[in-house]
Simulated scan of single mutants.
Amino acid sequence: MTLDEARRAFAEELRAVAHVTDQRVVDAFAAVPRERFVGPGPWRALCLYEQGYWTTDNDPRALYHNILIALDESRGLNTGEPSLWAYHFDRVGIRAGERVLQIGTGSGYFTAILAELVGDTGSVLGLEVDDALGEAASRNLEPWPQASVHKVNGAHEIEGQWDVIIAFAGASAPPIAWIDALTPGGRALIPLTTDARWGFLLRIDKTGDRLAARSAGNIGIFPCHGLRDAAEAAALGQSLGDPVGRAALKSLRRDDHEKDDTCWLHGAGWCLSKHELS
């Protein structure tokens, strides 16, 4: 099997594993060479069942499986799980010509896939706090002129308006500045995690001034520098003990209101609520 054939077989397997419905997502995963973004082999792959790493061989075809590859094993920093992001890219519906903001671009692999999805008429901006990763991502993304990387320090102020915002790092509460940066019709995927890196993926859909919110499933992910607060993480952890309430989420409320039984996670100036949008 050639490398191109391995890449296509990998993408087709993601179609089945993640129930991808958009052919464009499958084609994007088949088009992007993963080996460009993880350095020379052999590579260290994370076994989720053992919570430990194992070593592949030097053949780039080893990368075309649904595995996480270490970028910095000492920090537990990996590329994301391909099937996870294939699923979410498919469900969030990234269209040609859209503007996508990626929080935490890493070495740029998923940035390149997003660039394939928005095409030549769209744009993808990746924000990265790690100097070495940001520099590597800028080099790695040279074949995709519609993608760029900005080095940021912690909780970066978001400039401009974006059709899609996807965070690849966990915050302890919904960053309101990100949500304010969504265009009408915009969508956001934001991991909300406890200090143990585990939590859920919050999906936001903006219609006018209304913000629909729902849980898009469990996630374990690297923490977002500058967007961690111990009290918020503790409150989130307590709310995660109510999975029925999480499944019933309907909205992100910004209005001033007293906490009641429709509030799943009530914060300062925001609330993840079971309250139906009007």
Score class of each variant (00 low, 15 high):
26 V>L: 08
116 E>I: 08
248 A>E: 12
140 N>P: 00
40 P>N: 05
276 E>V: 12
203 R>K: 12
130 D>W: 10
157 E>Q: 06
238 Q>P: 01
241 G>S: 04
219 I>L: 05
241 G>D: 02
43 W>G: 04
270 W>C: 03
95 R>G: 10
246 R>W: 12
154 G>K: 01
211 L>D: 00
130 D>A: 05
162 W>H: 05
39 G>W: 00
51 Q>D: 05
231 A>S: 14
57 D>M: 02
260 D>P: 07
129 V>I: 10
37 F>P: 00
223 P>R: 00
98 E>R: 07
22 D>W: 11
174 P>R: 15
266 H>I: 11
74 S>V: 05
190 I>R: 03
127 L>C: 12
133 L>E: 00
212 A>T: 02
172 S>H: 10
114 L>W: 05
150 H>E: 03
134 G>L: 11
193 T>Q: 12
70 A>F: 00
84 L>A: 07
87 Y>I: 03
219 I>P: 02
155 A>M: 08
167 A>W: 01
16 A>S: 12
163 D>H: 15
198 W>T: 13
141 L>N: 00
114 L>Y: 08
198 W>C: 12
82 P>E: 10
188 A>T: 07
113 I>H: 14
140 N>K: 06
240 L>I: 08
221 I>T: 11
70 A>G: 04
72 D>M: 01
119 G>H: 09
74 S>W: 01
209 D>N: 11
171 A>S: 14
141 L>V: 00
50 E>R: 04
277 L>H: 04
72 D>L: 01
144 W>K: 01
28 A>H: 07
115 A>G: 11
123 S>W: 15
253 R>T: 15
184 P>G: 09
270 W>P: 00
259 K>C: 12
25 V>K: 04
182 L>V: 10
263 C>N: 14
120 D>A: 13
78 N>A: 04
164 V>W: 02
104 G>A: 08
29 F>V: 02
139 R>W: 11
199 G>Y: 15
27 D>W: 00
264 W>V: 06
86 A>R: 14
235 A>K: 13
11 A>E: 06
61 R>P: 11
145 P>R: 05
207 T>W: 07
256 D>A: 15
170 G>R: 00
56 T>V: 05
30 A>R: 06
273 S>H: 07
165 I>F: 13
51 Q>H: 09
214 R>C: 03
149 V>Q: 03
190 I>D: 07
267 G>H: 08
27 D>K: 09
31 A>Y: 06
146 Q>R: 09
266 H>P: 11
196 A>V: 08
155 A>G: 07
60 P>C: 05
198 W>V: 13
142 E>H: 11
75 R>E: 06
6 A>F: 10
262 T>C: 15
121 T>S: 03
182 L>T: 01
46 L>H: 09
226 G>K: 04
173 A>K: 13
164 V>N: 02
201 L>Y: 09
222 F>D: 04
257 H>P: 10
159 E>Q: 11
199 G>L: 14
272 L>A: 06
39 G>K: 13
188 A>D: 14
244 V>F: 02
112 A>I: 01
99 R>H: 14
183 T>L: 15
231 A>Y: 03
123 S>H: 14
14 L>E: 02
224 C>D: 07
272 L>F: 01
254 R>M: 12
144 W>S: 01
121 T>F: 10
271 C>G: 07
97 G>M: 05
15 R>W: 08
263 C>V: 11
196 A>T: 13
36 R>G: 00
